[in-house]
Amino acid sequence: MIVANQTLGDQLSVVSSQLFPPQRTRPLQARIIHYALLVTAALFLSLTSAASADNRTYQRSVEKYAMPDVTLINQNGNRVRFKNFLPTDKPVVVDFIFGTCTTICPVLSAGYASLQQRLGADTEKVHLISITIDPENDTPAVLKDYLKRYRSKPGWDFLTGSRKDIDRVMKAFNANIPDKMSHYALTFIRMPKEDNWVRINGMMSTSEFLAESQKAGIK
């Protein structure tokens, strides 16, 4: 496995976010990509009558979920009671990934890493939780190694457990992922003292993630 120790800082640049001002200008090529995307998007908008300005790479809904009382294990091997582990005094974000995943997890986890970058020094003010959908392979050591590759900061936990318990958690979130090869992207956001979860089905850009987080109340 690849072990990383450089920082992401250099590559961090932000586009199209009206919520967070750009920190530095993007290189020309990246800007071109961005404009190109805009143009393509606009072309689609004008061509597809069904498309509205509300089209996104993801769908969003607000849901109520009852969490099961199961004990999971984090990347340090600590047993955690899932119910109590979800903080009520700060925002929490949950996604489902696994250690040897190909396309979907890298994209979701890059999103977490990027959000942590934007949170500044106090990364723990938002609790990011990733839950494995491959508990058979994902031992605490695998989880730890994964987080290291994404240079996770405090506030990002990766949980494993027995398949039965993980299934119960997935069921509670109405996340029906029968097999890791039929994986799809799901992210859940809940605010302090809130009952409701924002459910996001699909992949978000950083600006979208931040916008969704902010809409849910994460500052």
Partner: peptide, 20 residues
């Protein structure tokens, strides 16, 4: 260095061509 999902920065050590 690269960008995924439009503007999410990723660097090669987290994942790269071989992952996908």
């Amino acid at each position: 260095p690269g960008y995924v999902s439009g503007d999410v920065p990723v660097d090669g050590t987290a994942f790269t061509c071989v992952s996908c």
